[in-house]
Design a protein around this nucleic acid. Structure first.
Lengths: 245, 245
DNA sequence: AAAAACAAACGTAAATATGACGTTTGTAAA
DNA sequence: TTTACAAACGTCATATTTACGTTTGTTTTT
């Protein structure tokens, strides 16, 4: 006889980090643990996203924020809820059978998936209790559960979204060079962009502000630093949508 | 003492229908019923989205498809899962207290929200058991629960998405005129578009095919009919994203 | 001190797209 | 026939894009 199913809601977080040195878009993953009925923890040789079930008095957003903080120590990072995954058979692992009075119940876990955008340099990977590690999106390790699917859907969403909103700057430090912005686009979209045209286009945006500062400590001509002005951007697009039908 | 909470997962559907005659983007809503503890049904004087809880062996997509079919009889319509709503206090109504052995439990319902795109003319509103009715997005009635919020978030998503993907054609018959396409954009985005420029732009798209047919039964010069070729569109954008950084 | 290396930054010309309009055309109804 | 009117076509100035070539300003090497 099939065990009864008990509902469970969790949040899973795809943490995207851009590495400005290797020019690579990465995902932060942890080693997978299996908890058996006896609460013993067994390390399995693959990686998973971090997630947790939603607490009783918590909103979904709050769960995501909490999960990120526990993993990275960071708060106030850009996050987006992009998809819920709730197939009845999306399970799972021995932990998903719970025992009530000697009767087995299957947990059916629906997960609300979020992605975060931040800089790899902001995360102290070694300080984490969780054996967290960065992997390039283009070269993911073996992944547990349906987490590969979740990462790829987050990535697709990011690709589309970064073309219609200036979220790219969440992956860069406050002060950046034109070429660094180009690096992010190239890395996310997997394309080559002509630097001269890209440069002109970006500099002409009103919301890209040239600072009175240049790079320091580089062994070539140091590049001009810029910042992104959210204020100006918001004013420009407050009412009208960019029409490019 | 606070009653314990029991989890529940539902799907709610925002059914968008374009009315080609009134040139209006509408939402299909039903009168709200309240089921009390005694299973008596009380009609409340506001409207709600249609939704239902997710069956035991159902995927979320299947639930959405089922809900749409029960409401409209239609299958194979464009649908998109756009957001999960799961605030702990997002409910509620008397139905959301359930009684187990004289003990009250609160249902905490997380809803996975979908929107559908179709033509109002495809739905026989009167045939529906549910007292379904179309309302313009710009003039919604009093809405129950957090359904106004859900509709508005669906609408925002649609506005952005229709500028980056050709989903607009899901709101139109297979054969349409240029002006009808313009009507849909104007209605969704709430803007005026210059007809001469719009026309030129649209006709130049390779995936807009002129048919050997014209409108019939109109009392003015009958317009040329066109169709959208998904094949051609997919080939054009199969690999590369439209870069407009 | 001069030269080399090299990314940063600037420049240009042709092709294409856009925005803001005016004009013609084809059909049904008067 | 004529009229009404949306459908459909046309034009021109400006802006944007594409595809390249060239110069500049540091640091490192000679």
């Amino acid at each position: 006889m099939e065990p009864e199913k008990i509902l469970n809601i969790s949040v899973d977080c795809v943490v995207f980090g851009f590495d400005i040195n290797t020019k690579s878009l990465n995902v932060l993953l942890i080693k997978r643990f299996l908890a058996t009925q006896d609460k013993e923890e067994i390390l399995v040789d693959d990686y998973v996203l971090t997630g947790y079930h939603v607490y009783k008095e918590e909103t979904l957003d709050e769960t995501a924020t909490r999960v990120l903080k526990e993993l990275t120590g960071l708060t106030n990072q850009y996050k987006k809820q992009f998809k819920a995954f709730g197939d009845p058979d999306r399970l799972m692992n021995p932990k998903d059978i719970i025992w009530i009075k000697n009767e087995a119940f299957h947990l059916r876990t629906t997960t609300i998936a979020y992605y975060f955008l931040l800089k790899t340099e902001d995360v102290d990977v070694n300080n984490s209790k969780k054996q967290a590690k960065w992997f390039p999106v283009s070269n993911l390790p073996e992944l547990g559960f349906d987490h590969k699917k979740i990462i790829l859907e987050a990535y697709e969403d990011l690709k589309i979204k970064c073309l219609s909103e200036p979220i790219i700057f969440k992956l860069l430090p406050d002060k950046f060079t034109i070429n660094e912005v180009q690096d992010v686009y190239q890395s996310i979209l997997g394309i080559e962009i002509d630097n001269r045209n890209f440069r002109r286009k970006l500099i002409n945006k009103k919301y890209i502000i040239a600072l009175d500062e240049k790079q320091v400590g580089v062994s070539k001509k140091p590049a001009q630093l810029y910042m992104f002005s959210k204020d100006i951007y918001d004013k420009m697009f407050s009412k009208n949508y960019l029409i490019s039908i």
